[in-house]
Design a protein around this nucleic acid. Structure first.
Lengths: 344, 344
DNA sequence: CTGAAAGCGCTTACAG
DNA sequence: CTGAAAGCGCTTACAG
């Protein structure tokens, strides 16, 4: 069951392999007649050129790797999986295939080697990373080595600009969330910040601090905690924080993101704290689950499709050596008022 | 920035390319000394053999394609995305990479060609299909062409056994669901069946009919509808069915799967019908959302991880020409009683 | 317009 | 134990 190759096609069409190749690659200097004849033989035999031959001759894989750090979230979180889908879609729109790689943790030597190997073997033309820490040395190293890299939520260095493409959240969502709560009359605001290896968690934290200060609100130790970026971590942080402050509860909780806010919901549910009756809660992301949570979650929403499409799209344009590719794109959050915050 | 190749390594290590290759591929006839010397040069230079060279020389890609038909569900449905993750995990456990391909509909010529091309270009050693219809001709064609294929929820023909690997639901979950409702005292049972291009929908439907007859229950036209396999389709089917039978509502609804059951929840919510007060509802799957739905959903649960791991695992074992690979594996459902069905 | 030839990077009989 | 050589399937200057 040998696969048919370009010599076979050439013989059957009565031309040389060169001509077959020219037809396949749409060279202009092939007479219409020859082209038709060759194309017909190709169709009839269901011939497709072997990719490995093409690669060796200098063509591109037309494949990107998606390296997703943090396996847990993808399976159960619809927001994460929608990110993933947006990337698959964007690649497809450009005619690229996707090698899907889920890695728990990029800092582990084993995963680090896996990524290097995947690039080095020539399996992909570029990689797109989600869940890397804000200054992961792996990125710098890949870029240094001449590889093309796209990263979500990453602070890319000046000198990395040429081969590195990023997408980021506008840095003011932390401020916006606090401002909003303040404007509703809240003064006793607790904050559950994220995972400080993530750029967005850091900038949101900075925004929270900035806005609290601007409004002259004290930052109380027991009301400032770090809860990671998942429901479970948000739950744990909220539960711990609330139990320690039952005699002087905050009137509002500002969560690092929607998942954390859902964790807060759970903790409040267990402790008999009503939202927004006793405590108002605000998240960030625009998670679909926020529309049917009880109560629907007020949040600062980002355009997930826009962000992830842009990331993949620009990465692919880098592969194609387009020279007008912008290195970083920043998305603005938009306040969506639902029912989890109340005026006091 | 030329990539280093095996000649470079050979030169630096003072051996021939043959020997470099032998070291890389763990040939036994290389003296420990030589091996060490070569390995060191490889490490120092971060050398990895180019895959395309290896392929051309007859090695395997160690990559499978996952062809997922029906893009919508993956992004928003945690059950579907968990299926996907289980497959990625299983491939990883075997050291295989995954080319992730989302296609809306395998029967479309364009997608059909995409699959053929992906195989023919030599990008993958095998493909695993989810969402194909129960007798999709594409499968037969691929197998005929000597390709290795794994399919979820597919009736594979005797003669396809050698290269085709499948995983299926035990065919009695339809019977079980009706039996259970009957045993709770229900006699007025409505059925929302699935999408009749899916094998599992068909067998469940058959089971429903079988069990209804066995218990001497009449199958009333207005209580038998086909609702697809998604929440939305379940919602529409339920809404339509309930509105037409408001004067003689069933006491129970047997849904094709959990997603459809959630659609029933929504329809009942809108129509002021209480579950299980007015109507009992049972699903199939064991969807995680069923644990925190209101009320928690009684369902016939399947071991998703087991099913999808087995599928991928056996497909990979076919690639590796292991000859004890079983062609089909059937999983049994297990009744999980939660709170959506009541005794009457 | 078109073919013969070189070259891409590997592995594996083959010969020694 | 090891190297020279063939061969995998393509593309693309090169020469005509």
């Amino acid at each position: 069951m040998k696969r048919i190759n370009s010599s076979d096609i050439a013989r059957m069409a009565g031309v040389s392999r060169s001509t077959v190749s020219r037809v396949i690659n749409n060279y202009s200097n092939v007479p219409e007649n020859t082209r038709r004849k060759v194309m017909q033989v190709i169709k009839e035999n269901n011939y497709y050129p072997q990719l490995s031959g093409q690669i060796l001759a200098g063509m591109k894989q037309k494949t990107i790797g998606i390296f997703w750090a943090g396996s847990n979230s993808l399976a159960s979180d619809s927001l994460s999986s929608s990110y993933f889908m947006h990337m698959l879609d964007a690649a497809k729109d450009r005619g690229y295939l996707v090698l899907a790689c889920i890695l728990e943790d990029l800092s582990k030597k084993e995963n680090y080697n896996f990524v290097r190997k995947t690039y080095a073997e020539g399996r992909i033309d570029a990689g797109v990373f989600v869940g890397a820490s804000y200054s992961d040395p792996l990125m710098a190293e890949l870029i240094e080595g001449g590889e093309i890299v796209g990263v979500f939520d990453y602070r890319h260095k000046e000198q990395e600009k040429y081969k590195c493409v990023t997408v980021n959240y506008e840095t003011d969502s932390g401020d916006k969330a606090i401002d909003y709560l303040y404007q509703l009359g809240h003064r006793d605001i607790a904050i559950i910040d994220g995972n400080m290896t993530r750029l967005s968690s850091i900038t949101r934290h900075e925004g929270h601090m900035r806005s609290m200060q601007a409004h002259g609100l004290p930052i109380r130790n027991e009301w400032l905690t770090y809860g990671g970026i998942t429901i479970d971590s948000g739950y744990k942080a909220a539960r711990h924080m609330l139990e320690n402050t039952l005699d002087h509860l905050p009137t509002a909780i500002c969560a690092n993101n929607d998942a954390v806010a859902f964790g807060v919901y759970r903790a409040c549910g267990e402790l008999g704290i009503s939202i927004p009756g006793d405590i108002s809660v605000i998240g960030v992301d625009g998670h679909a689950d926020g529309t049917h949570s009880q109560p629907p979650l007020t949040t600062i929403a980002f355009d997930a499709k826009g962000m992830f499409s842009s990331l993949v799209d620009r990465t692919i344009r880098k592969i194609q050596q387009e020279d007008d590719v912008v290195a970083d794109e920043v998305f603005k959050g938009k306040l969506i008022e639902r029912a989890s915050c109340r005026k006091i």
